[in-house]
Amino acid sequence: MDMSNYYVPSESKWPIIGATAVFLTVFSLAMAIFESKTGISWFTKILALGSAVLLIYMLVGWFSNVISEDQQGLYSNQLNRSFRIGMGWFIVSEVMFFGAFFGALFYARMLAVPWLGGEGDKGVSGMLWEGFQAQWPLLNNPNSELYPSPSGVIDAWKLPFLNTAMLVTSSITLTFAHHALKEEKRQQCKAWLLGTLMLGVVFLFVQGYEYYHAYHELQLTLNSGIYGSTFFMLTGFHGAHVTIGSILLAVMLIRVLKGHFSPNEHFGFEAAAWYWHFVDVVWLLLFVFVYVL
C-alpha cells in the first residue's frame, strides 16, 4: 500500500462556505417558522434566498472541484476506498433516520392506538377516550376536533402499486446502465441512465398527484392524526430522497455525456447508484408497511 499517494488537499474554501450555507439555510428556515404567525419579514426572505444561492454555489463548486481532481488522476485506489466507506456509512445513517419514523409508525400502530382504544397492557387509558375504537388505518381520531379524521386512505393497489413498479424498474434500468458503463458501451449507458431518471421524475409527479388527492378528496393531511403524520412524514422524506437521487443521477448523466468515468473507476456513478437503490429499498418497505398492511 503506497501511502504517499494519498491526496490531501492543502486547504479548501468549500468547507467553511458549506458550513455557512447550511447554517444560513436552517437559520432562515427557523426565522420563517418563528415569524410565520406575524408574517415573514423581508430580512428572512432575502436571507433564505441568499442561503439557497450560497448552498447551490457550494455544492456545484465543491463537487466540480472534486470531479476535476478526479479527472486529473489525483485519486488513488486507497482514496477511492475512503469515498466508498464514507458513502456506505452515510447511507447507513440515512437508513437509521428512516428507522426513527418507521419506529414511530410501528409504536403508534401496535401500542399507542390500541391502548387508547382500551386494548392491551395499558388499555385502562381507554376510559379517557370514550367512544374511541382502535383501528388501523386510523379513521377516527381520539379527539377529532383537534385532529380532524380523514375520510379514507390511499388504495395501495392503484397508484402506489404503479409507483412501486416504476421504482423497482428504475433500479433495474440503473443496473443495466452500470453494466453498460463497465463494458464501455457509452450509448447504452446514456439511454438506460436517461430512462432511470425519467422513471424517477414520473414517480415524483405521481406522488405529487397522490398528495393532492389525499389532501383534497380524502382530507388525509398532516393534521389528520397519527396516520396522516406517519404517512406524510415517511413518504415525504422518501420523496425528498428521490429528488436528491434524481439530481445525483442527472449529474451522472451529464458526466457520462462529457466522457467522464472509466470502465474500472467510476465511483461517482456507483455512489449515485447506491443511493438510488437505497431509496428504492426504503420505498419497498414503505409500500408494505404504510400502504398495504
Partner: peptide, 14 residues
C-alpha cells in the same frame, strides 16, 4: 409508599 408514576396526558398509568 414507594410509588412514583408518571402522569401522562391522554394515557393512564396504574
Amino acid at each position: 409508599l414507594a410509588i412514583k408514576k408518571d402522569a401522562i396526558p391522554g394515557f393512564i398509568n396504574e
